[in-house]
Amino acid sequence: MTKKVFWGALAVAGVAAGFASADTLDDVKARGELICGTSTGLAGFSAPDANGRYEGFDVAYCRALAAAIFGDPDAVEFKPLTTTNRFSALSAGEIDILSRNTTWTLTRDVDLKTTFVGVNYYDGQGFMVPKELGVSSARELDGATVCIQKGTTTELNLSDFFRKNNISYEPVPIETNAEAQQQYLAGACDVYTTDASGLAATRASFENPGDHIILPEIVSKEPLGPLVRHGDDHWADIARWTLNALITAEELGVTSANIEELSASTENPEIARLLGTEGNLGEMLGLSADWAKNAIMAEGNYGEIFEKNIGESTPIGLARGLNAQWTEGGLMYSPPFR
């Protein structure tokens, strides 16, 4: 009898394990924490700080999402992923969301069965070279040895760029940013190419950042953003509107400093809807009424996250540029909260 129960239990367990649950939000809630895929370490975007706590631009978004769901920005586990294993990890369900400076392309959105929930950084591919090489344009790189992260859009753009300009190069495929840094600094490659933001972040971590220049050519469009698995629209909505909430908060002047005051006494109906004191937007998403408030309180609004992690006051020193609000001449534009 006990044996029968045992086999029965095993069979049920097996069947249950075999079917991926369709509702990611339920899974996340049942688990009690969000699992977020990040990079293996890119200063300013996702890297552990001195206390081992993950910090950065991509990390802040995951904390905001965790806060939107649980009201707790620390209810999140980070999984460092390389460029080559990130999509497999997402489609296998090892992570709930990938927030890892990943470029939005048609193939990835359609053929790789992922859903990009928006753009949190408009980027483009650049080249970094040591100053002493005396190179001033990427077109002078004929015959150069180029370090490149495997399985990235930059790998494809690189091939296109050199083919278009009819010059040759020697690719050195590498797995992580740290590896690239080691090879580049040792002179095993002349050039390191990746998203311009990544180059700035990498250069900032060098001993002598001034010895290296980023060439003026930006050879591609790299809209970076978080992505989720294809097929769960509800989860994608939550992820998309959490990002939109951060962007809208900046547009409306809601910051982590004044959010308590505003949620108690705002006259602006859009802010009231965003912070959940008016309307039922949170309920529609299947979250609490103050979901967006929690998300913004986690690490601040989009502008605060930008300035704190990669902005001009940080060693990485990126200007807002394309990533300014649309009202300031940038491309950051969130659909309305209503």
Binding site: T83, T84, F87, S88, S91, A92, T107, R108, D111, L112, K113, K150, G151, E155, L156, V172, P173, I174, E175, E179
Partner: peptide, 24 residues
């Protein structure tokens, strides 16, 4: 070879091709 970026079978078919096509 994947540890040093030598483009063998794991670097091409099971590395970049897998990543670009998503056919794990």
């Amino acid at each position: 070879a994947i540890g040093v970026g030598y483009m063998d079978l794991t670097g091409t078919l099971m590395g970049t091709s897998l990543n670009l096509s998503g056919r794990e």
